[in-house]
Design a protein around this nucleic acid. Structure first.
Lengths: 206, 206
DNA sequence: TCCAACTGAAAACGATCGTTGTCACTGTAC
DNA sequence: GTACAGTGACAACGATCGTTTTCAGTTGGA
Protein backbone atom coordinates (compact mmCIF):
# COMPACT_ATOMS: atom_id res chain seq x y z
CA UNK A 1 0.00 0.00 0.00
CA UNK A 2 0.97 3.60 -0.43
CA UNK A 3 1.53 6.27 2.14
CA UNK A 4 0.70 9.77 1.00
CA UNK A 5 2.20 11.59 3.96
CA UNK A 6 5.55 9.88 4.22
CA UNK A 7 8.26 12.02 2.69
CA UNK A 8 10.69 10.69 0.13
CA UNK A 9 13.53 12.63 -1.37
CA UNK A 10 12.09 15.69 0.36
CA UNK A 11 8.63 15.36 -1.14
CA UNK A 12 5.46 13.47 -0.33
CA UNK A 13 4.11 10.65 -2.41
CA UNK A 14 1.25 12.79 -3.65
CA UNK A 15 3.70 15.42 -4.87
CA UNK A 16 5.82 12.89 -6.68
CA UNK A 17 2.80 11.26 -8.22
CA UNK A 18 1.53 14.63 -9.43
CA UNK A 19 4.95 15.49 -10.80
CA UNK A 20 5.16 12.22 -12.71
CA UNK A 21 1.69 12.77 -14.09
CA UNK A 22 2.68 16.26 -15.21
CA UNK A 23 5.75 14.90 -16.96
CA UNK A 24 3.68 12.28 -18.74
CA UNK A 25 1.19 14.84 -19.97
CA UNK A 26 4.01 17.08 -21.12
CA UNK A 27 5.56 14.14 -22.97
CA UNK A 28 2.17 13.52 -24.54
CA UNK A 29 2.02 17.11 -25.76
CA UNK A 30 5.52 16.84 -27.14
CA UNK A 31 4.74 13.69 -29.11
CA UNK A 32 1.21 14.60 -30.13
CA UNK A 33 2.45 18.02 -31.21
CA UNK A 34 4.26 16.31 -34.06
CA UNK A 35 0.89 15.73 -35.65
CA UNK A 36 1.25 11.97 -35.93
CA UNK A 37 -0.92 10.47 -33.23
CA UNK A 38 0.37 6.98 -33.95
CA UNK A 39 3.74 8.13 -32.61
CA UNK A 40 2.20 8.48 -29.17
CA UNK A 41 2.85 4.98 -27.86
CA UNK A 42 2.99 4.22 -24.18
CA UNK A 43 6.64 3.33 -24.55
CA UNK A 44 7.49 6.56 -26.36
CA UNK A 45 5.64 8.65 -23.80
CA UNK A 46 7.48 6.97 -20.96
CA UNK A 47 10.83 7.35 -22.66
CA UNK A 48 10.18 11.03 -23.33
CA UNK A 49 9.07 11.58 -19.74
CA UNK A 50 12.03 9.54 -18.46
CA UNK A 51 9.69 7.25 -16.59
CA UNK A 52 8.86 3.59 -16.87
CA UNK A 53 5.60 2.00 -17.89
CA UNK A 54 4.69 1.25 -14.33
CA UNK A 55 4.29 4.95 -13.60
CA UNK A 56 2.24 5.42 -16.72
CA UNK A 57 -0.44 3.14 -15.33
CA UNK A 58 -0.04 4.78 -11.94
CA UNK A 59 -1.53 7.96 -13.38
CA UNK A 60 -3.64 6.70 -16.30
CA UNK A 61 -5.93 3.72 -16.69
CA UNK A 62 -4.86 3.24 -20.31
CA UNK A 63 -3.47 5.03 -23.32
CA UNK A 64 -6.76 6.71 -24.12
CA UNK A 65 -6.88 8.29 -20.68
CA UNK A 66 -3.57 10.02 -21.39
CA UNK A 67 -4.84 11.21 -24.77
CA UNK A 68 -7.86 12.71 -23.13
CA UNK A 69 -5.79 14.31 -20.38
CA UNK A 70 -3.40 15.82 -22.90
CA UNK A 71 -6.21 17.27 -24.97
CA UNK A 72 -8.04 18.59 -21.94
CA UNK A 73 -4.86 20.17 -20.58
CA UNK A 74 -4.18 22.01 -23.80
CA UNK A 75 -7.81 23.00 -24.29
CA UNK A 76 -7.96 24.35 -20.77
CA UNK A 77 -4.84 26.46 -21.29
CA UNK A 78 -6.38 27.85 -24.48
CA UNK A 79 -9.66 28.65 -22.74
CA UNK A 80 -7.75 30.39 -19.97
CA UNK A 81 -5.58 32.39 -22.35
CA UNK A 82 -8.61 33.60 -24.29
CA UNK A 83 -10.65 34.32 -21.19
CA UNK A 84 -7.81 36.26 -19.58
CA UNK A 85 -7.25 38.31 -22.70
CA UNK A 86 -10.92 39.18 -23.06
CA UNK A 87 -11.48 40.11 -19.44
CA UNK A 88 -8.36 42.28 -19.60
CA UNK A 89 -10.15 44.46 -22.18
CA UNK A 90 -13.67 43.96 -20.86
CA UNK A 91 -14.32 47.73 -20.93
CA UNK A 92 -13.69 48.14 -24.67
CA UNK A 93 -16.00 47.58 -27.63
CA UNK A 94 -16.82 44.10 -28.96
CA UNK A 95 -14.45 44.42 -31.89
CA UNK A 96 -11.54 45.06 -29.57
CA UNK A 97 -12.58 42.08 -27.47
CA UNK A 98 -12.67 39.85 -30.53
CA UNK A 99 -9.26 41.13 -31.49
CA UNK A 100 -7.91 40.33 -28.03
CA UNK A 101 -9.38 36.82 -28.12
CA UNK A 102 -7.97 36.02 -31.54
CA UNK A 103 -4.61 37.53 -30.68
CA UNK A 104 -4.39 35.49 -27.49
CA UNK A 105 -5.20 32.33 -29.38
CA UNK A 106 -2.76 32.99 -32.20
CA UNK A 107 0.01 33.88 -29.77
CA UNK A 108 -0.66 30.69 -27.86
CA UNK A 109 -0.18 28.75 -31.10
CA UNK A 110 3.00 30.63 -31.93
CA UNK A 111 4.48 30.30 -28.46
CA UNK A 112 3.87 26.56 -28.58
CA UNK A 113 2.90 25.19 -32.01
CA UNK A 114 2.56 21.76 -30.43
CA UNK A 115 -0.50 23.02 -28.58
CA UNK A 116 -2.01 24.31 -31.77
CA UNK A 117 -1.54 20.96 -33.41
CA UNK A 118 -3.06 19.14 -30.47
CA UNK A 119 -5.98 21.52 -30.37
CA UNK A 120 -6.86 21.68 -34.04
CA UNK A 121 -5.60 18.48 -35.57
CA UNK A 122 -5.61 15.72 -33.00
CA UNK A 123 -9.34 15.63 -32.18
CA UNK A 124 -9.96 14.60 -35.77
CA UNK A 125 -6.99 12.29 -35.99
CA UNK A 126 -7.25 10.25 -32.83
CA UNK A 127 -10.16 7.80 -32.53
CA UNK A 128 -9.96 8.05 -28.75
CA UNK A 129 -10.89 11.73 -28.97
CA UNK A 130 -13.43 11.67 -31.76
CA UNK A 131 -16.32 11.20 -29.40
CA UNK A 132 -15.52 12.64 -26.00
CA UNK A 133 -12.64 14.96 -26.71
CA UNK A 134 -13.53 17.13 -29.62
CA UNK A 135 -15.82 19.41 -27.75
CA UNK A 136 -13.81 22.58 -28.10
CA UNK A 137 -14.79 23.39 -31.66
CA UNK A 138 -18.52 22.79 -31.09
CA UNK A 139 -18.23 24.89 -27.95
CA UNK A 140 -16.68 27.75 -29.87
CA UNK A 141 -19.28 27.33 -32.60
CA UNK A 142 -22.09 27.62 -30.09
CA UNK A 143 -20.45 30.66 -28.47
CA UNK A 144 -20.28 32.44 -31.79
CA UNK A 145 -23.76 31.35 -32.84
CA UNK A 146 -25.25 32.83 -29.68
CA UNK A 147 -23.45 36.12 -30.24
CA UNK A 148 -24.68 36.62 -33.80
CA UNK A 149 -27.27 39.36 -34.34
CA UNK A 150 -30.97 38.52 -34.21
CA UNK A 151 -31.61 39.64 -37.76
CA UNK A 152 -31.12 36.15 -39.14
CA UNK A 153 -32.98 32.92 -38.55
CA UNK A 154 -31.54 30.03 -36.62
CA UNK A 155 -30.38 28.14 -39.68
CA UNK A 156 -28.45 31.12 -40.96
CA UNK A 157 -26.81 31.67 -37.60
CA UNK A 158 -25.83 28.02 -37.39
CA UNK A 159 -24.38 28.11 -40.89
CA UNK A 160 -22.51 31.34 -40.24
CA UNK A 161 -21.04 30.16 -36.94
CA UNK A 162 -19.95 26.85 -38.44
CA UNK A 163 -18.38 28.61 -41.40
CA UNK A 164 -16.49 30.96 -39.12
CA UNK A 165 -15.08 28.19 -36.97
CA UNK A 166 -14.09 26.23 -40.05
CA UNK A 167 -12.40 29.25 -41.60
CA UNK A 168 -10.53 30.13 -38.42
CA UNK A 169 -9.47 26.54 -37.82
CA UNK A 170 -8.16 26.05 -41.33
CA UNK A 171 -6.43 29.44 -41.24
CA UNK A 172 -4.59 28.50 -38.08
CA UNK A 173 -3.76 25.00 -39.26
CA UNK A 174 -2.37 26.34 -42.52
CA UNK A 175 -0.44 29.02 -40.66
CA UNK A 176 0.99 26.42 -38.31
CA UNK A 177 2.22 24.01 -40.95
CA UNK A 178 3.70 26.82 -42.98
CA UNK A 179 1.46 26.48 -46.02
CA UNK A 180 -0.11 29.88 -45.28
CA UNK A 181 2.82 32.27 -45.49
CA UNK A 182 1.45 35.60 -44.32
CA UNK A 183 2.50 38.08 -41.62
CA UNK A 184 1.11 37.31 -38.23
CA UNK A 185 -0.63 40.65 -37.92
CA UNK A 186 -2.44 40.17 -41.21
CA UNK A 187 -3.64 36.77 -40.03
CA UNK A 188 -4.98 38.25 -36.81
CA UNK A 189 -6.62 41.18 -38.59
CA UNK A 190 -8.24 38.89 -41.12
CA UNK A 191 -9.63 36.63 -38.41
CA UNK A 192 -10.91 39.60 -36.44
CA UNK A 193 -12.38 41.09 -39.59
CA UNK A 194 -14.40 37.96 -40.26
CA UNK A 195 -15.71 37.87 -36.71
CA UNK A 196 -16.64 41.53 -36.76
CA UNK A 197 -18.31 41.27 -40.15
CA UNK A 198 -20.38 38.34 -38.98
CA UNK A 199 -21.35 40.10 -35.77
CA UNK A 200 -22.58 43.25 -37.53
CA UNK A 201 -26.35 43.22 -38.14
CA UNK A 202 -27.61 42.68 -41.67
CA UNK A 203 -28.37 45.80 -43.69
CA UNK A 204 -28.90 45.77 -47.45
CA UNK A 205 -27.74 42.24 -48.19
CA UNK A 206 -29.97 39.19 -48.16
CA UNK B 1 4.52 -16.65 -65.18
CA UNK B 2 1.28 -14.98 -66.11
CA UNK B 3 -0.51 -15.01 -69.41
CA UNK B 4 -2.60 -11.96 -70.10
CA UNK B 5 -4.35 -13.29 -73.19
CA UNK B 6 -5.42 -16.69 -71.97
CA UNK B 7 -9.07 -16.64 -71.01
CA UNK B 8 -10.33 -17.85 -67.67
CA UNK B 9 -13.95 -18.00 -66.65
CA UNK B 10 -14.72 -16.06 -69.80
CA UNK B 11 -12.36 -13.16 -69.03
CA UNK B 12 -8.71 -12.44 -69.57
CA UNK B 13 -6.16 -12.18 -66.82
CA UNK B 14 -5.90 -8.42 -67.23
CA UNK B 15 -9.66 -8.08 -66.82
CA UNK B 16 -9.70 -10.19 -63.69
CA UNK B 17 -6.76 -8.32 -62.24
CA UNK B 18 -8.44 -4.99 -62.92
CA UNK B 19 -11.66 -6.27 -61.41
CA UNK B 20 -9.89 -7.41 -58.27
CA UNK B 21 -8.14 -4.07 -57.99
CA UNK B 22 -11.45 -2.29 -58.33
CA UNK B 23 -12.96 -4.42 -55.59
CA UNK B 24 -10.03 -3.68 -53.32
CA UNK B 25 -10.33 0.06 -53.88
CA UNK B 26 -14.07 -0.14 -53.27
CA UNK B 27 -13.42 -2.04 -50.04
CA UNK B 28 -10.95 0.67 -49.08
CA UNK B 29 -13.59 3.34 -49.63
CA UNK B 30 -16.06 1.35 -47.59
CA UNK B 31 -13.70 1.00 -44.64
CA UNK B 32 -12.09 4.42 -44.88
CA UNK B 33 -15.54 5.97 -45.16
CA UNK B 34 -16.14 5.01 -41.56
CA UNK B 35 -13.71 7.74 -40.61
CA UNK B 36 -11.38 5.49 -38.64
CA UNK B 37 -8.31 4.96 -40.79
CA UNK B 38 -6.90 2.41 -38.35
CA UNK B 39 -9.78 0.14 -39.35
CA UNK B 40 -8.31 -0.14 -42.83
CA UNK B 41 -6.07 -3.15 -42.32
CA UNK B 42 -4.93 -5.32 -45.17
CA UNK B 43 -6.88 -8.20 -43.71
CA UNK B 44 -10.07 -6.15 -43.36
CA UNK B 45 -9.79 -4.83 -46.90
CA UNK B 46 -9.35 -8.31 -48.27
CA UNK B 47 -12.23 -9.67 -46.24
CA UNK B 48 -14.50 -6.85 -47.41
CA UNK B 49 -13.45 -7.37 -51.02
CA UNK B 50 -13.82 -11.15 -50.63
CA UNK B 51 -10.26 -11.65 -51.75
CA UNK B 52 -7.17 -13.03 -50.08
CA UNK B 53 -4.02 -11.20 -49.15
CA UNK B 54 -2.19 -12.56 -52.12
CA UNK B 55 -4.35 -10.51 -54.47
CA UNK B 56 -3.87 -7.46 -52.38
CA UNK B 57 -0.16 -7.49 -53.13
CA UNK B 58 -0.93 -8.36 -56.71
CA UNK B 59 -2.39 -4.89 -57.17
CA UNK B 60 -0.62 -2.83 -54.50
CA UNK B 61 2.96 -2.76 -53.32
CA UNK B 62 1.90 -2.16 -49.73
CA UNK B 63 -0.88 -0.76 -47.58
CA UNK B 64 0.06 2.85 -48.28
CA UNK B 65 -0.31 2.28 -52.01
CA UNK B 66 -3.93 1.29 -51.48
CA UNK B 67 -4.54 4.33 -49.31
CA UNK B 68 -3.19 6.57 -52.01
CA UNK B 69 -5.21 4.80 -54.71
CA UNK B 70 -8.41 5.10 -52.68
CA UNK B 71 -7.90 8.79 -52.08
CA UNK B 72 -6.97 9.46 -55.67
CA UNK B 73 -9.99 7.53 -56.92
CA UNK B 74 -12.38 9.52 -54.77
CA UNK B 75 -10.67 12.82 -55.51
CA UNK B 76 -10.85 12.12 -59.21
CA UNK B 77 -14.56 11.34 -59.05
CA UNK B 78 -15.11 14.61 -57.21
CA UNK B 79 -13.10 16.56 -59.74
CA UNK B 80 -15.07 14.98 -62.53
CA UNK B 81 -18.44 15.63 -60.91
CA UNK B 82 -17.60 19.29 -60.35
CA UNK B 83 -16.10 19.75 -63.77
CA UNK B 84 -19.09 18.13 -65.47
CA UNK B 85 -21.54 20.25 -63.53
CA UNK B 86 -19.72 23.49 -64.35
CA UNK B 87 -19.29 22.77 -68.03
CA UNK B 88 -22.97 21.85 -68.20
CA UNK B 89 -23.79 25.48 -67.29
CA UNK B 90 -20.79 27.08 -68.95
CA UNK B 91 -22.99 29.66 -70.65
CA UNK B 92 -24.44 31.11 -67.43
CA UNK B 93 -23.07 33.76 -65.07
CA UNK B 94 -20.30 32.95 -62.57
CA UNK B 95 -22.72 32.78 -59.65
CA UNK B 96 -24.70 30.08 -61.37
CA UNK B 97 -21.49 28.22 -62.11
CA UNK B 98 -20.46 28.40 -58.47
CA UNK B 99 -23.86 27.14 -57.49
CA UNK B 100 -23.54 24.22 -59.89
CA UNK B 101 -20.08 23.33 -58.56
CA UNK B 102 -21.16 23.42 -54.93
CA UNK B 103 -24.33 21.52 -55.68
CA UNK B 104 -22.43 18.83 -57.52
CA UNK B 105 -20.02 18.47 -54.64
CA UNK B 106 -22.72 18.38 -51.98
CA UNK B 107 -24.75 15.86 -53.92
CA UNK B 108 -21.69 13.70 -54.32
CA UNK B 109 -21.30 13.73 -50.54
CA UNK B 110 -24.96 12.92 -50.02
CA UNK B 111 -25.04 10.16 -52.59
CA UNK B 112 -22.03 8.54 -50.95
CA UNK B 113 -21.08 9.98 -47.55
CA UNK B 114 -18.11 7.62 -47.48
CA UNK B 115 -16.54 9.63 -50.28
CA UNK B 116 -17.02 12.83 -48.36
CA UNK B 117 -15.31 11.35 -45.36
CA UNK B 118 -12.43 10.08 -47.45
CA UNK B 119 -12.08 13.41 -49.18
CA UNK B 120 -12.29 15.74 -46.21
CA UNK B 121 -11.22 13.75 -43.21
CA UNK B 122 -8.76 11.09 -44.25
CA UNK B 123 -5.96 13.26 -45.67
CA UNK B 124 -5.52 14.69 -42.20
CA UNK B 125 -5.96 11.41 -40.40
CA UNK B 126 -3.74 9.07 -42.33
CA UNK B 127 0.03 9.58 -42.09
CA UNK B 128 0.45 7.91 -45.48
CA UNK B 129 -1.52 10.72 -47.09
CA UNK B 130 -0.28 13.71 -45.13
CA UNK B 131 2.49 14.41 -47.60
CA UNK B 132 1.55 13.19 -51.03
CA UNK B 133 -2.19 12.77 -50.85
CA UNK B 134 -3.68 15.90 -49.40
CA UNK B 135 -3.34 17.98 -52.50
CA UNK B 136 -7.01 18.47 -53.20
CA UNK B 137 -7.60 21.20 -50.62
CA UNK B 138 -4.52 23.23 -51.61
CA UNK B 139 -5.59 22.82 -55.23
CA UNK B 140 -9.04 24.16 -54.49
CA UNK B 141 -7.51 26.97 -52.45
CA UNK B 142 -5.30 28.00 -55.34
CA UNK B 143 -8.23 27.81 -57.75
CA UNK B 144 -10.27 30.17 -55.60
CA UNK B 145 -7.34 32.46 -54.92
CA UNK B 146 -6.71 32.97 -58.62
CA UNK B 147 -10.37 33.77 -59.23
CA UNK B 148 -10.61 36.48 -56.58
CA UNK B 149 -10.87 40.08 -57.83
CA UNK B 150 -7.74 42.13 -58.29
CA UNK B 151 -8.80 44.79 -55.81
CA UNK B 152 -6.93 43.12 -52.97
CA UNK B 153 -3.27 42.38 -52.44
CA UNK B 154 -1.85 38.88 -52.56
CA UNK B 155 -1.92 38.39 -48.82
CA UNK B 156 -5.60 39.25 -48.63
CA UNK B 157 -6.43 36.91 -51.48
CA UNK B 158 -4.48 34.11 -49.87
CA UNK B 159 -6.23 34.69 -46.56
CA UNK B 160 -9.65 34.87 -48.19
CA UNK B 161 -9.17 31.72 -50.24
CA UNK B 162 -7.88 29.78 -47.25
CA UNK B 163 -10.79 30.97 -45.13
CA UNK B 164 -13.26 29.94 -47.79
CA UNK B 165 -11.84 26.46 -48.14
CA UNK B 166 -11.76 26.04 -44.39
CA UNK B 167 -15.35 27.21 -44.04
CA UNK B 168 -16.61 24.97 -46.83
CA UNK B 169 -14.68 21.98 -45.55
CA UNK B 170 -15.95 22.34 -42.02
CA UNK B 171 -19.49 22.98 -43.24
CA UNK B 172 -19.46 19.75 -45.21
CA UNK B 173 -17.80 17.75 -42.45
CA UNK B 174 -20.35 18.98 -39.94
CA UNK B 175 -23.18 18.29 -42.35
CA UNK B 176 -21.85 14.80 -42.99
CA UNK B 177 -21.52 13.78 -39.36
CA UNK B 178 -24.92 15.21 -38.52
CA UNK B 179 -23.76 17.95 -36.16
CA UNK B 180 -24.93 20.60 -38.63
CA UNK B 181 -28.64 19.95 -38.89
CA UNK B 182 -29.82 22.22 -41.69
CA UNK B 183 -31.74 21.68 -44.92
CA UNK B 184 -29.58 20.71 -47.82
CA UNK B 185 -30.68 23.65 -49.95
CA UNK B 186 -29.75 26.11 -47.23
CA UNK B 187 -26.33 24.56 -46.99
CA UNK B 188 -25.81 24.88 -50.73
CA UNK B 189 -27.10 28.45 -50.81
CA UNK B 190 -24.88 29.44 -47.89
CA UNK B 191 -21.81 27.96 -49.54
CA UNK B 192 -22.63 29.63 -52.84
CA UNK B 193 -23.29 32.89 -51.04
CA UNK B 194 -19.85 32.85 -49.48
CA UNK B 195 -18.20 32.16 -52.81
CA UNK B 196 -20.14 34.85 -54.58
CA UNK B 197 -19.51 37.40 -51.84
CA UNK B 198 -15.79 36.69 -51.96
CA UNK B 199 -15.72 36.93 -55.74
CA UNK B 200 -17.47 40.30 -55.84
CA UNK B 201 -14.99 43.20 -56.05
CA UNK B 202 -14.43 45.38 -52.98
CA UNK B 203 -16.47 48.57 -52.76
CA UNK B 204 -16.74 50.58 -49.55
CA UNK B 205 -15.04 48.11 -47.22
CA UNK B 206 -11.32 48.04 -46.46
C1' DT C 1 19.43 -2.19 12.27
C1' DC C 2 15.60 -4.00 10.07
C1' DC C 3 11.49 -3.89 7.42
C1' DA C 4 8.46 -2.14 4.23
C1' DA C 5 7.55 1.29 0.87
C1' DC C 6 9.30 3.08 -3.16
C1' DT C 7 12.00 3.12 -7.40
C1' DG C 8 13.99 1.85 -12.02
C1' DA C 9 14.83 -1.28 -15.63
C1' DA C 10 13.37 -4.78 -18.24
C1' DA C 11 11.22 -9.16 -19.26
C1' DA C 12 7.01 -11.35 -20.42
C1' DC C 13 2.30 -11.98 -22.44
C1' DG C 14 -1.22 -11.81 -25.65
C1' DA C 15 -2.95 -9.42 -29.50
C1' DT C 16 -2.66 -7.42 -34.02
C1' DC C 17 -0.39 -5.83 -37.87
C1' DG C 18 2.08 -6.00 -42.60
C1' DT C 19 3.96 -9.21 -45.40
C1' DT C 20 5.41 -13.67 -47.34
C1' DG C 21 5.00 -18.49 -48.03
C1' DT C 22 2.70 -23.10 -48.32
C1' DC C 23 -0.56 -26.36 -49.97
C1' DA C 24 -4.50 -28.43 -51.94
C1' DC C 25 -7.80 -27.59 -55.52
C1' DT C 26 -9.93 -26.06 -60.08
C1' DG C 27 -10.29 -24.89 -64.64
C1' DT C 28 -7.99 -24.48 -69.28
C1' DA C 29 -4.84 -25.61 -73.08
C1' DC C 30 -2.52 -29.07 -75.50
C1' DG D 1 -5.55 -36.94 -69.53
C1' DT D 2 -1.82 -34.51 -68.18
C1' DA D 3 0.72 -30.46 -67.10
C1' DC D 4 0.32 -26.04 -65.50
C1' DA D 5 -1.51 -21.24 -64.71
C1' DG D 6 -4.71 -19.51 -61.68
C1' DT D 7 -7.24 -19.62 -57.25
C1' DG D 8 -8.47 -19.64 -52.34
C1' DA D 9 -7.72 -20.54 -47.57
C1' DC D 10 -4.63 -20.10 -44.20
C1' DA D 11 -0.21 -20.74 -41.60
C1' DA D 12 3.94 -18.45 -40.46
C1' DC D 13 7.29 -14.70 -39.47
C1' DG D 14 8.94 -10.73 -37.51
C1' DA D 15 7.69 -6.42 -35.60
C1' DT D 16 5.17 -3.47 -32.57
C1' DC D 17 1.77 -2.42 -29.43
C1' DG D 18 -0.80 -2.11 -24.77
C1' DT D 19 -0.49 -4.01 -20.49
C1' DT D 20 1.20 -6.75 -16.53
C1' DT D 21 4.71 -8.77 -13.88
C1' DT D 22 9.19 -9.67 -12.03
C1' DC D 23 13.21 -8.47 -9.64
C1' DA D 24 17.12 -6.30 -7.72
C1' DG D 25 18.27 -2.07 -5.57
C1' DT D 26 17.37 2.27 -2.56
C1' DT D 27 15.33 5.12 0.82
C1' DG D 28 13.39 6.39 5.17
C1' DG D 29 10.71 5.41 9.56
C1' DA D 30 10.57 2.19 13.60
Amino acid sequence: MTNATRTWGGTTLADRRADRRRRLVEAGIELLGGGDSTAVTVRAVCRTARLTERYFYESFADRDALMLAVYEHVAESARQAILDAVTRVADTDPEEQARAAVRAFVELLIDDPRKGTVLLLVPITEPALNKRGAELLPTFTAMIRDRLPDGYDDVHRELTATSLIGALTYLFISYLDGSLDVPRERLIEHAVGMLVAAASPPDATS
